[in-house]
Nucleic acid binder design. Structure first.
Lengths: 140, 140
DNA sequence: TTTAATTCGGACTGATTACTCTGCTTTTGT
DNA sequence: ACAAAAGCAGAGTAATCAGTCCGAATTAAA
């Protein structure tokens, strides 16, 4: 089944949302995340490491180590995460995969697709991680 | 790179559009399609066979054999082809892959994504193969 | 009736994605 | 100092997707 984002990207989003939820509880171990999200510990671990490299997530080793958000949830959009994991290919290439299709010689759906694609992008850019937090006020 | 539709689906769309273009030239061989679209003959062949099974494309064997559209291009939408090859997963599942997300307990983007997804679907459903034909009138 | 040109079916191969394993390093509590 | 608990890195494995190959069945023309 073809899906908009890669599995890894979906897990990254879920992981980030989870970290935001537990934001005030300090470091969260990959083990705990994995259990609560029912994902493989090794895989979510690797995925979060990608986000650590990009400065989106903080990590610390050792006995009390784990992961935490590097930015305020209000300053972190879903698109930020998607771009790191999957890149922006989804928002760029021709929907029909037509090799000739581009802004200069667009295919029949190109013009109609553009606004939809842009709206999707905007929505993901405007939706912050904070909006997923259950019932907290602004910042802690 | 993650993309909306599978490669096979993209080829199917390109193949159908090509068949529509050559509609008045009788059967078109997989070999010719492959050459003109710069796709592997074997692969486009297999792909079109899937569409034959669903009654979207006609095929005939033998010396003058080849493929042709089974329906009028005006009666064939892009969505028809997409559904056969990729199914409707893209239009159904949660964008974020959240396991809990559904119409009963939607995630934060679910509500906003719905209209976009529906608009995309509508656009693909309303765009017929005929719209791609260069400069022909209605039906021959 | 033979031959050439085609689709068709199934098995096969290669590439990419998804995930796992193992061992190492770091850090903290005892 | 030591042991336990965590992340990290790289190699390895499994599954799916993309594409190939080959031989059989079909059909039309020579």
């Amino acid at each position: 089944m073809t899906v908009l984002f890669s599995r890894k990207c979906e897990y990254a989003l879920q992981g980030i949302l989870y970290l935001a939820e537990k934001q005030d509880q300090g470091n969260i171990s990959a083990d705990q995340i994995a259990k609560d999200l029912s994902i493989s510990k090794d895989f979510i671990s690797k995925t979060l490491q990608s986000l650590v490299k990009e400065g989106i997530v903080l990590s610390s080793r050792g006995k009390t180590g784990g992961f935490a958000l590097a930015r305020a949830p209000e300053e972190l959009s879903l698109l930020d995460i998607i771009l790191v994991i999957d890149g922006n290919g989804v928002f760029e290439s021709c929907v029909l995969g037509l090799p000739t299709c581009g802004s200069d010689s667009p295919c029949s759906v190109h013009e109609q697709w553009g606004p939809l694609r842009e709206a999707s992008r905007q929505m993901l850019a405007n939706t912050t991680v904070a909006q997923f937090k259950p019932t907290n006020e602004t910042d802690k």
